[in-house]
């Protein structure tokens, strides 16, 4: 985290660059889905969700409008992807939800725990 004049930590520039890469990866994935192996594409969706989970913690600490505006599309895509899973064979309904939102939440919680451990170790 970097500091600003008001003393509030701001996400580093790398975080924003990763978000740009995230959005590019998502576009590439859905645009090329027909050409990519059907068994590879789900991981192409869940991996960005996990990356988004890792980046959620610095974005929401402290909460900022820009941070929330970055997270909203992650949730929006997750919600639409879940709704679209109606068209998967029965038995697979909600599996995109668990994989996408689960990946996002698991990595976000993991990042939060890691940050707390780091803070405790450094005595802050």
């Amino acid at each position: 985290m970097c500091g600003n004049s008001s003393g509030t930590p701001e996400p580093k520039a790398e975080v924003w660059v990763v978000w740009l890469v995230w959005s590019a990866a998502l576009v590439w994935l859905v645009a090329r889905a027909d050409a990519i192996s059907a068994w590879t594409t789900p991981w192409g969706v869940y991996a960005p969700a996990s990356v988004a989970g890792v980046l959620t913690v610095p974005l929401l600490n402290p909460p900022r409008v820009a941070g929330l505006l970055l997270l909203a599309p992650v949730w929006l895509f997750g919600a639409w992807f879940t709704l679209s899973s109606m068209f998967l064979p029965s038995g697979y309904f909600l599996s995109p939800f668990f994989a996408y939102m689960g990946g996002w939440m698991a990595t976000a919680i993991g990042m939060l725990v890691w940050q707390r451990l780091q803070a405790r170790r450094s005595g802050t």
């Binding site: 959005s23 576009v27 859905v30 889905a33 895509f77 639409w80």
Partner: peptide, 15 residues
Amino acid sequence: ATLYAIARTQSFVRQ
């Protein structure tokens, strides 16, 4: 990117 992805999600899910 997200809006574009949402527009393509249907064909993605069909595949």
